[in-house]
Design a protein around this nucleic acid. Structure first.
Lengths: 259, 259
DNA sequence: CACGGGAGCTTGTCCGCACAAGTCGATGCA
DNA sequence: TGCATCGACTTGTGCGGACAAGCTCCCGTG
């Protein structure tokens, strides 16, 4: 055995941090300290190479990390523009399907109690967030724990009249309405606003659920909005106590780095 | 003038797509078609170099794009593991502070009704999601619409005994408990699990809120978890009907590419 | 003065090479 | 059998170079 084996690592306390990480940290610090103001250009890549005495490749890896943190934005032929002064810890969640998001009880059977073409009066229009006077569809549905079992949801769903074909399909398909609209009209949902609250059930809702009028129920209002900001669907579902739980796990989102 | 100027661009109809983009598209297609199953390893980078006849740099740019789409995950010394078979539109939401997330009514005054050091019995332990037998703190608080006004929230907050200093500070500071814990102990919150449901108020909660026992209330349970998976705080807040609304806007998230 | 075009800058793409660091199975010794 | 070690293989880091593509400004031409 020669003595050379095991490089010995003379200075184990050295963090041995990659250069690009050191450069990125330095640039983040400079931005936070105001040396590079938002809207201004960062020094060019060749200049940063000279300053930090690293290759352009290393600089680019560092800049990508700044980009992923939302601090800069690079444009070919122009430069890297400072976007924000600090990288804040961001909390959020992501899911890959709308069903996850809505926590749809796909297993529970849905009953379509009725569909009606209605003209939106001012009161309804203000709740829907649309202009009054136009025709919409109103669909009343109910969900049961199992077929013939207890009701766990009573919903009123409103969609503009033009989506009538999707509404007519609703009785034959187990899919949720937004899925039918997406499939038939190609408008895909870009945004969903959900509100959770406890309210007193209306007479109709109480009847659907087998409760006395005015009983406290969980009310979930949802607005589905397409990529142009147009309202696709508005729904109000109420659930009796104990029948509905909404779970939301939010985690700190780290930048998605892959050097 | 010589004739050499303007490279003429013999085939302008060529899309001139970057090679890394072509490689990425090919790999995405292969994954979607099932040629690379989820959990399996992608061919190694040198092998992809040979297959596509490009440099390793180009392969790595392509793989990064797959990573950012959530399709693969690379581990040094091991390889690139297929995570998902298709790049789906992802929905999510993000906010930059926990306060936004909790929609804290920072304006409403908080009343600390009492703090107690308790030993966690098995029933409580199972609800908290911790081991029984250890001492915890239980804090009872109430929030009022305005000083002297109607109660809009009654909470039971549980934290491990070691955070006693933060608990004692609670009466003097208007900050929420998790903020005190973060400030004093440096454990920052990595994950929050929230559950919304309608339940019957317990006798104590009903008394806090001025309702009759068993009244239906909105119940929000929150678990604060640190980066090592440890439980920092568990809380259960109940709100009378109409006093609490939780709003959640979720939008389609586009991938963040920077080539 | 309007405008086209080029110089000179920027970032984007792409190639080559080399070594470090991490994983995992095979090997061989106890 | 159990375990330490080695080596083959993987991705990560870092260097050098070159050219393409895009943006701005400036200058000369009409």
């Amino acid at each position: 055995m020669t003595a050379k084996k095991k490089p010995v690592r003379a200075a184990p306390q050295r963090a041995a941090r990659p250069k690009h990480s050191v450069v990125a940290a330095a640039l983040i610090d400079e931005i936070r300290s105001g040396r590079h103001a938002p809207g201004a250009l960062l020094p060019s890549e060749p200049e940063l190479c000279r300053r930090f005495e690293v290759s352009r490749h290393t600089i680019r890896v560092a800049l990508r990390s700044l980009y992923e943190k939302g601090l800069i934005l690079s444009r070919q032929g122009h430069g890297s523009i400072v976007q924000a002064t600090a990288v804040e810890p961001r909390y959020g969640f992501a899911c890959s399907s709308i069903d996850d998001l809505l926590q749809y009880a796909a297993a529970t059977p849905r009953e379509v109690l009725g569909t009606a073409r209605i003209d939106v009066d001012p009161a309804l229009a203000s709740w829907l967030g649309c202009e009054p006077g136009y025709p919409w569809w109103e669909i009343r549905t109910r969900r049961l724990q199992e077929a013939g079992g207890a009701a766990i949801a009573s919903s009123r769903v409103y969609v503009p009249e033009v989506y009538g074909a999707a509404v007519r399909e609703l009785k034959k398909s187990p899919l949720p309405l937004f899925a039918l609209m997406e499939a038939r009209y190609g408008h895909h949902i870009a945004q969903i606003r959900q509100t959770f609250s406890v309210v007193a059930a209306t007479a109709g809702e109480a009847a659907d659920l087998g409760l006395e009028a005015g009983a406290a129920v969980m009310c979930v209002e949802r607005r589905f909005i397409d990529e142009r900001g147009g309202l696709l669907e508005v729904s109000r579902s109420v659930h009796p106590p104990g029948a509905f739980r909404y779970e939301l796990t939010v985690r700190q989102m780290l930048g998605t780095e892959r050097p």
